[in-house]
Design a protein around this nucleic acid. Structure first.
Length: 742
DNA sequence: CTGATGGGCCTTTTT
DNA sequence: GGCCCATCAG
């Protein structure tokens, strides 16, 4: 433990009992640290989230800090939820009023409250990635007249994002290459267009807030008066803008409490800056640093192996991780023939471990580098008739049909949202084609109006001469509808409004084209209707904000007792008894794109480290002899990271047969999934379906229920159909019938 | 104006 | 192997 300040406070520790119960010496020191800046540097499984939660509870309970004077920031919604639960457990309803959320959510709130100081109104919308893409493409092609082949939107957006993360405005942007010259111009126009849409993107949430504080010291002072303590989880993931925010907010009281682990920094690509650790030490010279080195999660064998991998990274604060959990099973390395056999090995091994009573299915996880790798795994689970949970990945709100509907709501809420207007003005088709739109645009420009304003004006004042009669009628009819929705939007719930839009536009009929895909899209929209059921008394603005910031209908359903599939990035912060790291091949982990950049290679190594340290007891490192990518199968080379692990920690010849890649012994999976036996009784009695049941659908035929989760007043059911593949269905809508076993 | 078809591109990772 | 997009026919 390193300490740069005396710790007379240790004597007080004895006073507070329950909140410090079960914490070790170092954890207690961190939790009860006196006022002032604190940095808790902690290895994996050392209870850093726990320390953070206990710190909050301790501040409230022992130090009498009012909860609403505490701000706690996380990076993901999941982390925020978990943190809230932990603190709730310690404090009960005293937690009321605590400001706890992701950086983005907290900034979104601040921007709304301070909209008067900003070039946006309280009703601003948040543009997500597809929106950003649409906008930047329009900037490149329409505004700058450039070829998007030569200036890929993604690259331009990435450069803009980087600038924003460093709080560089278009005016301050200093191009050094011709490409950057283009970026500067695109950035400039992009920001103008965002403001014209009364919109901000993800990065803007942070940048605008930081710039707001810099520009209006009196606003910042108001927050200083409001906030006593600021706590940050996963500090190593902060980017420039986030660090600036923390510094601004903490500069008055200096009560900044950060926890983090530089070895788990895996978000460099989205602007995370490891130098923030150095900055913190410089900006807060009286920083108290506490090191948590005891690991409560993994066996010593797993810890040693992970340590061997991470030790190859230069420039780290050396940590000496230890655990009292000596021994444990050796690490298993397995070479499969191809990705199919790889997946089969995973499924078979889990089935065997479960059958032996070694582990609960929900305590197993499979982790991979890229989302694309999940397919082979899902196939294997489905083939074996075994349920699984896919974490993250499915960007529900990114689906076309969902985006359409959200665009309607956003347009109703924010008339200036041109991106949404363009999206829905002819969806479903209502006779407003390219020509008509062009005409409207031209007129808008002449009148100096935004597209949305022009549309409304056109219908109001009967500017009939402007456009051809047919076009005019179509536009006026749409404007009328829009106007009507806006009029009633304040009086109805989001759900009612949504149904109204669906009914009056005939959107569901438009989707339902008789194809399977159409069916699925309709189901997705109905799912969205269900989601809105949970927002009965919530204003439209709050609903839209949540939809933008909560990337998914996310959160693992704890009730389903099945293994989890996820990327290594989503795995951070989680732990499982049994972990499979798959696809450990050169080009995949480490990823190809890291080969020529030592910094990125170091990050790949940290990714491996994060994955390994998720395991409590058993760790399987798996790779395939050959793998299919882009339809082509190629021979692979196993990951260099595997070779960094001392052989003494590995199971002798584990899983490796003579030829190296022979198929594993097939373990027959019982038809009804055998690992639902230990399922907890379903918490919601409303459920009518259960994981593992055989069902039949009039269109898709027979299949197996692989996941059931409550959603609003209904339930969402994932079914693996024997022929039609995996579908997501809605309990009350889908005409599902239970099939008798046999 | 819309829907069908075929070609090009792709795959990191997330708020 | 799939998705998005541009192009073309109706």
């Amino acid at each position: 433990m390193i300490q740069s300040r005396p710790n007379a406070h240790l004597e007080r520790i004895a006073l507070s009992t329950s909140i410090l119960d079960g914490l070790n010496e170092q954890q207690r020191i961190a939790v009860t640290a006196p006022d002032g800046p604190v940095l808790v540097l902690a290895g994996p499984g050392s209870g850093k989230t726990r320390v953070l939660a206990h710190r909050i509870a301790w501040l409230v309970r022992e130090r009498g800090v009012p909860p609403w004077r505490i701000v706690a920031m996380t990076f993901t919604n999941k982390a925020a939820r978990e943190m809230r639960q932990r603190v709730e457990k310690l404090l009960g309803n005293e937690i009321q009023g605590i400001r706890l959320g992701t950086f983005h959510a907290i900034c979104a709130r601040i921007l709304r409250d301070q909209a008067d100081h900003l070039p946006i109104t309280r009703d601003y919308v948040i543009f997500d990635t597809p929106d950003q893409r649409a906008l930047i493409r329009s900037v490149i092609a329409d505004d700058l007249g450039l070829d998007e082949k030569r200036y890929p939107p993604e690259r331009i957006l990435a450069a803009i994002s980087q600038a924003k993360n460093d709080l560089i405005t278009p005016q301050d942007y200093q191009p050094t290459t011709y490409f950057e010259e283009i970026v500067k111009r695109a950035y400039q126009r992009y920001q103008e267009r965002l403001l014209a849409n009364n919109a901000v993107d993800f990065d803007d949430l942070l940048m605008h807030t930081a710039l707001l504080f810099a520009q209006y010291p009196q606003v910042l002072r108001a927050y200083h008066r409001l906030i006593d303590h600021i706590l940050v989880d996963e500090f190593q993931d902060t980017n420039g803008a986030q660090y600036a925010l923390l510094k601004q907010l903490a500069e008055a009281r200096r009560n900044l409490f950060c926890v983090g682990d530089e070895d788990q920094s895996i978000y460099r690509w989205r602007g995370a800056d490891y130098r923030n650790l150095t900055r913190l030490r410089t900006d807060f010279p009286d920083l108290l640093t506490v090191l948590l080195e005891q690991n409560y999660r993994s066996t010593q064998i797993i810890l040693d192996a992970a340590q061997a991998v991470i030790n190859k990274n230069p420039y780290r604060t050396p940590k000496r991780l230890f655990t009292l959990r000596q021994g444990g099973p050796a690490i298993v390395i397995y070479e499969a023939y191809d990705e199919e056999r790889e997946a089969q090995f995973v499924v078979d091994t889990i089935a065997a471990l479960v059958a032996q009573g070694e582990v609960e299915p929900r305590e197993c996880a499979v982790m991979y580098r890229t989302n694309a790798q999940s397919r082979a795994l899902e196939d294997a689970f489905v083939r074996a008739n075994l349920p699984y949970r896919l974490v993250g990945a499915t960007h529900f709100y990114a689906r076309r049909e969902i985006k359409d509907i959200i665009a309607y709501l956003r347009l109703i809420h924010n008339p200036e949202d041109t991106v949404s207007l363009r999206r829905v003005i002819n969806t479903p088709p209502r006779g407003i084609g390219e020509k008509t739109l062009e005409g409207l645009e031209r007129w808008a420009q002449e009148q100096g109006l935004s597209l949305g304003a022009a549309l409304m004006r056109l219908s109001e004042e009967g500017e009939k001469g402007v456009l051809e009669a047919r076009s005019y009628r179509a536009l006026a009819a749409f404007a009328h509808r829009l106007d009507e929705w806006r009029r009633v939007s304040a009086h109805f719930s989001v759900g009612t409004l949504l149904k109204m839009v669906l009914d009056e536009t005939g959107y569901l009929d438009y989707l339902n084209d008789g194809t399977e895909q159409g069916e699925e899209r309709v189901a997705n929209v109905r799912e969205l209707v269900n989601v809105t059921a949970g927002y009965e008394d919530v204003p439209l603005s709050a609903f839209l904000e949540e939809v933008a910031l909560v990337s998914d209908v996310d959160g693992m359903d704890e009730a389903v007792n099945a293994p989890s599939l996820m990327t290594l990035h989503t795995a951070k912060g989680l732990e499982f008894d049994v972990v499979f790291l798959v696809g450990l091949e050169e080009g995949l982990l480490p990823h190809q794109r890291s080969f020529d950049d030592p910094e990125e290679m170091a990050e790949e190594r940290r990714l491996m480290y994060v994955g390994m340290t998720r395991a409590r007891r058993r760790l399987y490192l798996v790779y395939a002899f050959r793998r299919r990518a882009w339809g082509e199968s190629a021979v692979t080379q196993r990951s260099r990271f595997i070779d960094d692990i001392p052989p003494s920690l590995l199971a002798s010849g584990a899983g490796l047969t003579e030829g190296g890649y022979a198929a594993p012994r097939r373990i027959r999976a019982a038809q009804p999934p055998r690992w639902t036996a230990g399922d907890k009784p379903a918490p919601a009695p409303r459920r009518s379906f259960k994981t593992g049941q055989r069902v039949v659908h009039p269109q898709f035929g027979s299949g197996l229920v692989i996941e059931v989760r409550p959603s609003g007043n209904d339930e969402e059911i994932r079914v693996a159909f024997d022929r039609a593949g995996v579908k997501r269905l809605l309990g009350s809508y889908a005409d599902l019938k239970l099939l008798e076993d046999g």
